[in-house]
Amino acid sequence: MAAQAQSTVVPTDAELLQAQAELWHHSLSYLTSMALKCAVELGIPTAIHRLGGAASVPDLITGLSLPSAKLPFLGRLMRLLATSGVFAADNSTQEEMYRINALSYLLVEGVTDDRHINHTSYVRTAASSRYIEAALQLPDWFKKDVPTPPFEHHHGVKLFHETMENHDPDYHKIANEALAAHDNFGVDVGLREFRDTFEALKSITYCCGTNEDDTTARAIVKAFPHIKCTVLAKPKVIATIPRADAVINYVAGDMLKFIPPAQAVVLKLVLHHLSDEDCVKILANCKKAIPSREDGGKVLFGDIVVDSSPGLMLETHLLMDVAMMTMTQGRERDENEWREIFMKAGFRDYKL
């Protein structure tokens, strides 16, 4: 017998007014992304940085050589971005000033800080017409029994793939720059955080993922010169990698088929691009490539674990998950979903 339907609780007047404001917010939030993309393409973060880290709207009009008639409109754009946390607003002076904060620092070009990776390409890719057009296809995609994600179904090419390169080389280039910024950021933090783990290793195999980049492997051997490092990558990628660093051995191959043996296998932001089935295959190959746990064998991978705690981080994780659903065959996973993949790959235990 079907459960009795629960009656809908009628909201109060105050709740309805609040709900309308929230509905407006959700419906118009894409304009925050567009405003951020606009700021990046105008070069506003870099302009503020060059002006000493703080600038008024008239300063920006002059510094960016924008028409003076656009001053009130730029002020409205900056007000939204400051309210959204992209810039810090300083009201202590007669004229409102906008300052670089941690978020906009990631969008400044020409920073010499070793920890800094420019994320402008990420904004330009995530807020691009190609991403947006793919997302607009979601209702139609749900109605069709098709195996390809909306991006591929709509555009006829795969994101981060040579089919995209052949179709639109300029977009392929910036999308891969965005992927590299996404994947390589925070490597130094991770190496410091898990220094004891890496110091105990004698050899690793680093598997190049979607970004086909050995930056993380180079950072590992620089921080821990005693580690013998093998990089597994596609033959086309290996042909383009400079061989000045003799401490790294490059092997052409596919991690779905084979992973060169080492004490540990390292993957960074690889698995969230892939289906559960492919993750199981790769982790099973990782298990074959390493010695037993008793003999020091490890698989180390950096990836997103969806956090159930409410707040900005959870919403960001879920936005990334829907982005993966829209653009790739992958997904973001919570701890239970990761555990299921580990067990299917033959592992008995894991540690977050």
Rank of each mutant, 00 (worst) to 15 (best):
Q6S: 08
S7L: 09
V9E: 13
V10Q: 14
T12P: 01
T12G: 05
D13H: 12
H26S: 10
L28H: 01
Y30D: 10
A35C: 09
A39G: 11
G43L: 07
P45Q: 09
I48C: 05
H49R: 13
R50V: 01
A54D: 11
S56G: 12
S56P: 09
L60S: 10
T62N: 11
P67C: 09
A69Y: 14
K70G: 14
K70M: 15
F73V: 12
L74F: 13
L74K: 06
R76Q: 14
S84G: 09
M97C: 00
I100L: 06
N101G: 05
R115Y: 05
N118M: 01
H119F: 15
H119Y: 14
T120S: 12
S121Y: 11
V123I: 12
A126G: 05
A127F: 04
S128Y: 03
R130W: 07
E133W: 02
A135F: 12
D140W: 15
W141Y: 06
F142P: 13
K143W: 00
V146R: 11
T148Q: 15
P149A: 09
P150D: 03
F151G: 06
F151Y: 13
D168E: 11
D168W: 09
D170V: 13
A175S: 15
N176S: 13
N176P: 02
A180E: 13
F194W: 10
F198Q: 04
A200M: 08
K202H: 14
I204Y: 06
Y206F: 15
N211S: 14
E212G: 01
I220W: 11
I220M: 06
V221Q: 11
P225W: 13
C229R: 06
V231Q: 08
K234G: 09
K234E: 12
P235M: 12
V237I: 15
V237F: 00
I241M: 10
A244K: 13
D245K: 04
A246N: 00
A252M: 04
G253S: 02
G253P: 00
K257D: 04
F258M: 00
I259E: 04
P260K: 04
V266C: 08
V266R: 07
V266Q: 07
V270L: 15
L274Y: 02
S275V: 01
D276M: 01
E277V: 08
V280K: 09
L283T: 05
L283R: 07
K288Y: 01
P291R: 01
G297C: 07
I304G: 01
V305D: 02
P310E: 06
M313I: 14
E315W: 02
L319H: 09
A323E: 03
G330V: 03
R333Y: 02
E335V: 10
E335D: 03
E337W: 01
I341A: 04
A345R: 03
G346M: 06
R348Q: 13
D349G: 10
Y350L: 01
Y350D: 05
K351M: 08
